[in-house]
Simulated scan of single mutants.
Amino acid sequence: MDDIITLADDPDLAHLVDLIDILRGPEATFWDEGSSGIGRKIASDLEPILAGQGRRRDVDYLAVHVLKYLGHGNKYISQETITRNLRGVHGLPAAGHAWVDDATRTAWKLVTRYSLPRWRVSRTPGSAWLAD
């Protein structure tokens, strides 16, 4: 359960890191929009992962932070702001929409992959739906 997870081990994790790389780098003020401290959180999440020492918890935190601060309907960084800060797409609205959609979907895959076993604890999948 405490095994190291590298980018080579999980293509969804590698994809999420690639998506984050499409955004402006950590020096950009974009990362501190709304005083959320998202830049520090993402940097802290990425550090062990990029060093090849990421664990389930690190991947889960990264994915949850992407959902919370960069995903659909978040109250921190708007899709329009994300669109303006994507490298190489010159503010194309469809690119911003696609980025948010892809990042949200990928982050959710990672959350369910790495958090779901912990949420279940000792319950059998679907047991809540079975009659006693």
Rank of each mutant, 00 (worst) to 15 (best):
D3A: 08
I4P: 07
I5F: 01
I5N: 00
L7P: 00
P11S: 14
L13M: 08
L13F: 00
H15D: 13
L19G: 01
D21L: 11
L23A: 02
A28M: 02
T29K: 09
F30Q: 07
E33D: 12
E33G: 06
S35C: 11
S36D: 08
S36K: 04
I38Q: 08
G39I: 08
A43H: 14
L46G: 01
I49E: 08
I49D: 02
I49S: 04
I49A: 07
L50H: 07
L50I: 11
L50N: 07
L50F: 02
A51K: 06
Q53V: 05
G54I: 05
G54C: 01
R55P: 06
D58R: 04
V59T: 10
L62S: 14
H65Y: 07
K68D: 12
K68Q: 10
L70C: 03
G71N: 02
G73A: 12
N74C: 06
Y76Q: 12
S78P: 07
E80D: 14
E80A: 15
E80R: 09
E80K: 07
R84E: 14
H90L: 11
P93R: 10
P93K: 11
H97T: 11
H97F: 05
A98E: 11
A98F: 02
D102N: 11
A103F: 00
A103P: 01
R105P: 06
T106A: 00
V111E: 13
V111R: 09
R113G: 01
Y114L: 13
S115L: 08
V121Y: 13
V121I: 15
V121W: 14
R123V: 10
A131L: 08
A131M: 10
D132R: 11
